[in-house]
Amino acid sequence: MTAMKKIEENLRKEAKRLLEGGEVSVVLAYGRGYDENHPMPFAARTVEDVDSLVFNEYCTFNLARYLPKYPPKTKIAVAVKAADSRAVVQLIQEEKVRREDLVILGIPVTGMKDQKTGEVIDNKTTCNMANPVLYDILLGDEIHGFKGGSPYDVLAELEGMDHDARMAFWKKEFEKCIRCFACRKACPMCYCDPCFMDASRPRWADKSPTPDGHLMYHLTRFYHLAGRCIDCGECSRACPVDIPLYLFHKKLAKECEDMFQQAAGMKIEDKPAMVNYGNQDSDEMLK
């Protein structure tokens, strides 16, 4: 039995147990889509639903995205891969969900595949960790000795450019934007209601899709995710026009780790970096 199949089996077993015993009222995991390579996020609420749960290498979704929409005190079991578990930790830090309401089903896995291209998702677009950082039940065997390379390697090319070239790069990428907001909607950390882009007073950016509005939208969204982005890569996978948003998020994650000595979503006791300050902070960071 392959590792993926074993995870699927354990997922169904645990989901059934949790729902039967009334420990949780919903299990957030993956279900069948219109074909094998296109599973869907699925919320199992009854024991019968459990048969529809699946897990394979295309189950890339970050289910933490659905957590904040449940009413407070709903008992939820959520299946998480490594990056997804960081999102859960970050949401707990930000008090959007409570630890005691969650049963975290950890999935240790590598080699997930992009649904659009079929390529293996690696450190180029994600944090590329193998094991969840926080879980109650592990659905597979912990992975040891996995070396996926630094998630920040991919930044070298952009960091090496001069300012003009970088501006040209981003202008070209942002020009593709169609303002469908799939990036912010797929993001587990984008839960604001309303989003600053939907506010009419002040109107931060043009309502119509102008390049200037794109710049405002994306830069501000990058700022809002600084120190919070857990590098799951969902925004870039969700983008129908393939804007490499992960590059900017990675850059800010890297800078924030350097400046604040804290990576997003790693420890439940941490305070989110941007609503905090440290004794070690110095004016060096403003240089």
Partner: peptide, 25 residues
């Protein structure tokens, strides 16, 4: 529609979606 994240990707790529908004900028 439980999985829907309510983005606009489906309507923007659709060849038959024609809803529009009007705004003074």
């Amino acid at each position: 529609t439980a999985a829907c994240i309510s983005c606009g990707a489906c309507t923007f790529v659709c060849p038959t979606c024609y809803c529009f908004d009007i705004s003074d900028e």
